[in-house]
């Protein structure tokens, strides 16, 4: 008995260190497994159209006001700041180009992603987490229903489809915000501004931004669902799962954004 205690005493710190390194791998493995399951089940009938539409409303339509307001002011501040900078070397006419490129390539998808992660991702983790700790997910299983198919697939597809849509709105409204600030407040010529915007903006800029949005949408739904599914320990556990879902989704968006940009715009 006492030798066992000594053994535990010696091994525990090593276990702790090991855990620190193994935990992220566990997480990655868990989320990957969920991705594989979700994609496979997405193609298997019956298709839960009602569930998908409900999630599209929740994720897409209900996030729209926040996305629009954020994008308007982001476009505006971009115009304001780049105007100040560009004036130093008399390149004010390029403000429109900078706003359009920044919005479509980066800020449109990234800000939309962060908003959806904070709104819909948190809701997903909290809802699924509550279902987990109140045994509703177990109940689904006892009713011979696959909980991933029933709960994760609609959220995954809803998020995957709505993020690009929101991004398009965000792009458009951001450009309008920049246009408004430049022409009404900074005295730029509207015609020149729009010409500069259209001439230098490539379809590829928009397209790549939308591609990013698809990726962010999938990541938010998977990470948040995974955290919800694996929450335990009552209200506190659900709270922690929700926090982790938002933090991890946001980090994934910002970090992967760099690598996606480096890969697509090389």
């Amino acid at each position: 008995m006492s030798s066992e205690k000594t053994w535990t005493f010696l091994v525990r710190p090593v276990e702790r260190i090991g855990e620190t390194f193994v935990r992220p791998l566990w997480l990655l493995g868990g989320i990957t497994t969920m991705l594989v399951k979700t994609v496979r089940l997405s193609f298997r009938p019956p298709y839960n159209l009602r569930g998908i539409v409900k999630q599209m409303l929740e994720i897409g339509v209900n996030s729209l006001p926040v996305v629009l307001i954020t994008a308007t002011f982001t476009g505006g501040v971009l115009a304001l700041q780049s105007y100040t900078g560009f004036r130093r070397f008399s390149a004010e006419s390029l403000v429109g180009t900078v706003v359009a490129m920044s919005m479509t390539r980066e800020l449109g998808p990234v800000l939309t992603g962060l908003i959806v992660a904070g709104r819909a991702g948190a809701a997903m983790a909290a809802e699924l987490g509550t279902m987990r700790v109140t045994e509703q997910i177990d109940a689904l299983e006892t009713l011979a229903t696959n909980p991933v198919k029933h709960l994760v697939v609609p959220r995954f597809l809803g998020s995957l489809l709505m993020l690009p849509a929101l991004t398009v709105f965000s792009d458009a409204v951001g450009i309008m915000g920049g246009f408004f600030v430049s022409t009404k407040l900074l005295g730029a010529n509207p015609t020149t501004y729009l010409t500069r915007t259209w001439d230098y903006l490539k379809v590829m800029d928009i397209y790549h931004g939308i591609l990013k949005a698809f990726f962010f949408g999938a990541a938010i739904a998977l990470i948040s669902s995974y955290q919800g599914f694996n929450s335990k320990g009552g209200a506190e556990g659900v709270g922690k799962a929700t926090t982790r879902a938002v933090v991890l989704s946001s980090m994934t968006i910002l970090v992967s954004d760099y690598f996606l940009s480096a890969w697509m715009f090389k």
């Binding site: 279902m131 109140t134 045994e135 509703q136 177990d138 109940a139 689904l140």
Partner: peptide
């Protein structure tokens, strides 16, 4: 289930 686990 213990607390019925109804789908709320």
């Amino acid at each position: 289930f213990q607390n019925a686990a109804l789908f709320d």
